[in-house]
């Protein structure tokens, strides 16, 4: 029961945390470009404003999809806080991605359709990697439960360093950061307008933004599992990882999906498999 309450509170706290993180991201990005950047609370202003926009719904299914999307993201994070099964929470996260795409496909707009197709290819690129990362974790801990990670005495990072790189690669794709902002770009606009997000407007867009915050928190939570033994280590790992993500986001240009798939399926997969084999042989 205590665990349940804890998870509920953590989930509630994750929303502001995700928003702050997004604000921090924009602030840091601006600093990297020697700009002032927006206030830290900017993502909250954005979402609040979007909630107040008048509805413009070309298809009621779009509303349906945005609600399911945010529910699934929240549920995945909740399962993580309940220290549940890694694979299961990943599958629940898939629901969220699938419905985001389904909504975009349900509108006869070329931009949202192309965006949705690209989003699907991004999913194709990161899903096998994340599955392998979880299997790698399970080969160390002997279980897929988050709870059992804590039973291991050395940080996972030391045993699965290559897998962590693969995870980082997959996460960049999942978060849609450059060079993988292929399906939709979070800043400015691109050749397919706002890609998969084009037709979501007002409150629906706010919900998708919310689900993105929750996904970010969940992903950082997964990264944190790699240094669970000490709180300081965890923080250091997360800070370094996220800074690296922002840095990569800023210094790279958008690549094509072909490039993304080849690199996800080639070198990155090789890294992941190598790490699992290496651990297995040891």
């Amino acid at each position: 029961m205590l665990k349940f309450l804890f998870a509920l509170v953590a989930l509630a706290l994750s929303v502001p945390a995700g928003g702050l993180l997004a604000g921090l991201d924009r602030k840091l990005t601006a600093r990297l470009q020697s700009r002032m950047g927006p206030p830290l609370l900017q993502p909250f202003y954005d979402v609040l404003k979007l909630c107040g926009k008048s509805p413009c719904v070309s298809n009621p299914w779009l509303v349906f999809c945005s609600f399911v999307c945010v529910t699934a993201s929240a549920l995945a994070l909740f399962l993580f806080y309940m220290q549940g099964d890694l694979l299961l929470l990943f599958f629940v996260m898939t629901i969220s991605a699938v419905f985001k795409v389904a909504g975009a496909l349900s509108i006869p707009s070329p931009y949202s359709n192309v965006g949705a197709q690209r989003e699907l290819l991004q999913m194709l690129a990161y899903e096998p990697l994340i599955t392998l990362v979880f299997v790698g974790i399970a080969s160390v801990t002997g279980s897929f439960m988050v709870a059992d990670v804590y039973a291991v005495e050395t940080p996972l990072l030391l045993q699965l360093p290559f897998l962590y790189l693969a995870l980082g690669y997959a996460l960049t794709i999942k978060l849609g950061k450059s060079p993988f902002d292929i399906s939709a770009c979070h800043h400015g606009h691109q050749e397919i307008v706002r890609g998969v997000l084009t037709e979501y407007s007002g409150p629906q867009l706010a919900l998708l933004e919310l689900s993105h915050w929750l996904d970010t928190i969940l992903i950082l939570g997964l990264c944190a599992l790699f240094w669970h033994t000490s709180f300081v280590g965890m923080v250091i790992l997360l800070v370094i990882t996220y800074l690296a993500e922002i840095l990569v986001d800023n210094i790279t240009a958008r690549m094509t999906w072909q490039w993304m798939l080849k690199n996800a399926f080639g070198p990155t997969l090789a890294l992941a498999v190598f790490n699992i084999l290496w651990f297995y042989v040891r």
């Binding site: 700009r35 927006p38 202003y45 606009h189 691109q190 307008v193």
Partner: peptide
Amino acid sequence: DLERFGILNIGDPK
């Protein structure tokens, strides 16, 4: 630096 005011050039009327 227009983004100081939270302004983004968003490119999508919706």
